[in-house]
């Protein structure tokens, strides 16, 4: 066992990923980015005060200092990577990456070009987002997606249960309702786009339904958790302890 150094600002140790949270209150069910039990490793949450989702959706520049401060505080606590619980934190990806020395994957949308690179030229890639009216071309450009890749975007904003239980910060979340609506939106997207090759779920509250979306569509589905797990892997390499005679 080695010699360990005190991290001057750390209250506790052993965290893997630090997650910036919107200033939002609602039930985060198992599978949600804001549920600690979703992960196979310890995560550390930090609420960015004042970061309501309408401000994050539009990329309000006045939030930048608070977001940077929160990210730097997470880094000082010893986390190995930083993510968030809203895909629209893409608006702040660059300023956060500049402010800290660890990998930053603030938005699930960063996966879109990576997933697109797995698909043949003729296939389109789908994004299901909390609010498609807020997902601008400017934001898509920020992901680095090639212009010649066909992108299909659908939003959940007009789904009544998603709107009432999630967008309106309802007191109650009925997972059957949200699952049904998410699957419907995905199936509609697939019907309208027979060339659909994969789906990326933008919203941090949708990973609990990824399995249902995949079972309904048969398509690869990537979400916030697949991305956070990927960066976990890169920051915590594992030993392969298979017995030698097993090779």
């Amino acid at each position: 066992m080695p010699v360990y150094k005190t991290r001057p600002q750390a209250e506790a140790y052993g965290y893997c990923t630090g997650i910036l949270l919107l200033d939002y209150q609602g039930p985060f069910v198992p599978g949600d980015v804001g549920n600690a039990d979703t992960y196979d490793y310890p995560v550390l949450f930090k609420v960015v005060e004042g970061a309501t989702y309408p401000r994050v959706f539009t990329g309000d520049p006045e939030l930048e200092p608070a977001i940077i401060k929160a990210a730097q505080e997470l880094e000082a606590q010893g986390v190995k990577a930083i993510s968030s619980d809203c895909g629209f934190f893409l608006n702040y990806q660059d300023v956060i990456a500049k402010a800290v020395n660890i990998p930053v994957c603030a938005s699930s949308l960063l996966q879109v070009p990576f997933v697109a690179s797995f698909l043949g030229k003729s296939k389109s890639i789908g994004v299901i987002t909390a609010d498609s009216t807020a997902l601008s071309n400017h934001m898509i450009a920020k992901t680095g997606l090639d212009n010649d890749r066909k992108l299909v975007i659908k939003g959940m904003q007009e789904q009544p249960c998603f709107d009432k239980q999630i967008m309106q910060e309802g007191d109650e979340l009925v997972t059957e309702d949200i699952e049904r609506e998410t699957v419907e939106v995905a199936l509609e997207m697939q019907r309208e786009n027979p060339d659909l090759g994969a789906i990326v779920l933008e919203c941090s509250m949708l990973p609990p339904y990824s399995k249902a979306v995949q079972e309904a569509t048969g398509l690869p589905v990537y979400d916030f958790i697949t991305m956070i797990d990927y960066f976990q892997r890169g920051t915590h390499q594992k030993a392969y302890d298979t017995p030698r005679h097993y090779y």
């Binding site: 949270l21 200033d23 939002y24 209150q25 039930p27 985060f28 069910v29 198992p30 949600d32 804001g34 549920n35 600690a36 039990d37 979703t38 949450f45 609420v47």
Partner: peptide, 8 residues
């Protein structure tokens, strides 16, 4: 009052 869930 909760901002995150799933804690043991």
């Amino acid at each position: 009052g909760a901002y995150s869930y799933g804690h043991g």
